[in-house]
Design a binder for these strands. Structure first.
Lengths: 197, 197
DNA sequence: CTATTTATTGACGAATTTGACAATAAATGT
DNA sequence: ACATTTATTGTCAAATTCGTCAATAAATAG
C-alpha cells in the first residue's frame, strides 16, 4: 500500500537549494540548520526527516554537485560548435554565467575553506578541480596542437582562476565590469597560445 | 605607579595571529573563541581581557590588516627597481609569496564570505581590492603607456584573480606547480599589453 | 469510513558558544 | 614588606545549535 504519497525528493531539492544559499552567504560553518530551515520555509525537523544529520546534508550536497557538474559537462559538449570551440567555451564560462547570475565559484570557494575537516569534501573539490583543468587543457591543446603542455596548463590555471574569482570580486565591485574584464583577460590569455605557432 | 608591566600589546598580536589561522582554516564563523584560545595557547577569558568581544576581535584584525597592507605597499615601492618593474611586481606577488608560504589570499577569500553580515568588513575588503587594482593598473600603464585603459583593467583583474586563487588551489593540488603556473599565466597576461605598440 | 503511511509540529536534553564576574596569582615601585 | 596594578584562572548564566522523539495532521488505498 502507498497511502500518503512521499514528497521526499522534492523536499530534498528545496532543502539542498537552501543549504547552498546559506553556504554561499555564511560559509559552511555558518550555514546553521535553523538558517537552512528558514531559507527553505520548512521546519527544522523536516531537514532530518528528508535528508538527515548535518554530515548527511553535506554528503547529499556533494552528490548533487557531482551530478550537476556532469550534466553541465554534457551540455557543454553538445553546445560546443565544431570550430572556434575555445571562444565558445569562454562565452559559456563568463557570459552565460553572468546572465544566469550563477554562484558556483562562490560555492566552490566557500566549500574549500572547511575542506580540511571533511575528507569527503576535500576529495570532491580535488576531483572537480582536476577534471575542470583537464577539460580546459584538452580544448586548448585541440586548437593549439603546437603549444607546450606547460604553457597549456598555465593558461588553463589562469582561466580557472578568473572563472572562480569573478563572483567573489562581484561582491566588492560592479558585477558587470568584473565579468567583462575577467572574460577579456581569459581571452587574451588563450590567444597567447598562438605565440608558438 | 606602573606595578606589574602590561603585556597587552604582545598578547594582542598572539591572539590576532591565532585568529587569522583559525579564520583561514575554519572560516570566520568557524573561528570560535575557544579555538582561537587553543591556537594561541592562552585561556579563553584572556581574549576578552586583551582584545575584547568577538566583534572587537574582528575589528582589531581589520585594523591590523590595514596596517600590514600599507607596510607591504611601502616595501613594494622601495624594493621596486627603476626598470622592468612589472616583472619585479610579479616576482614579489608569486615567488616571494610562495617562499614565505603566506596565506593572504585565503584570508581574503575567507573574510569575503561573511562580508554581508559585517558592514565594516565589507568596507575594508572594498578598499583593499580597489587599492590593489589601482596599484597594479598604475604599474602596467607606466610600462605600457600606449595601452587602452580597458585592457589595463582587464589584465590587472586577471593578475589579482591569479594572485588570490593560487593559495586556494594549493589546497587541492601541488603548491609549487600552482604557483609556477599562476605566475607564468600572469606574465603572459602582462605581455599581451605590448600588442598595441 | 477505516487503516496505513507519510508529513508536520512541538518540545526536550546535551553540547557548544559567548559574555561576564569574582577570586587568585604575579610583578613592580616604594 | 607593602600597596598597587596587571595577568590568569575558574565559574556562571543566557543563547544557540543539534539530535531525537512523541504527538498530531494529512493523504491515499481498500
Amino acid at each position: 500500500m502507498v497511502a500518503r504519497p512521499s514528497i521526499k525528493l522534492q523536499r530534498r531539492e528545496e532543502i539542498l537549494d537552501a543549504f547552498e544559499s546559506c553556504v554561499i552567504r555564511h560559509g559552511l560553518t555558518g550555514a546553521t540548520l535553523q538558517k537552512v530551515a528558514d531559507e527553505s520555509g520548512l521546519a527544522r525537523p523536516l531537514i532530518h526527516h528528508n535528508v538527515g544529520s548535518r554530515d548527511e546534508l553535506l554528503e547529499a550536497l556533494l552528490e548533487r554537485l557531482d551530478l550537476r557538474y556532469e550534466q553541465e559537462r554534457e551540455e557543454f559538449r553538445q553546445h560546443l560548435p565544431g570550430s572556434d570551440r575555445c571562444r565558445a567555451m569562454l562565452d559559456i564560462m563568463f557570459d552565460h554565467r553572468y546572465a544566469t547570475s550563477s554562484h558556483e565559484g562562490q560555492l566552490y570557494q566557500a566549500l574549500s575553506i572547511g575542506a580540511e575537516e571533511h575528507p569527503n569534501l576535500q576529495r570532491s573539490l580535488n576531483r572537480w578541480y582536476g577534471s575542470l583543468l583537464a577539460d580546459i587543457e584538452y580544448e586548448l591543446l585541440d586548437e593549439h596542437p603546437q603549444a607546450e603542455t606547460t604553457d597549456v596548463r598555465a593558461i588553463a590555471t589562469g582561466v580557472i582562476a578568473l572563472y572562480f574569482n569573478a563572483e567573489s570580486m562581484a561582491l566588492v565591485t560592479d558585477r558587470r565590469t568584473v565579468f567583462q574584464d575577467s572574460k577579456r583577460a581569459a581571452q587574451r590569455l588563450v590567444e597567447t597560445l598562438k605565440w608558438n605557432g
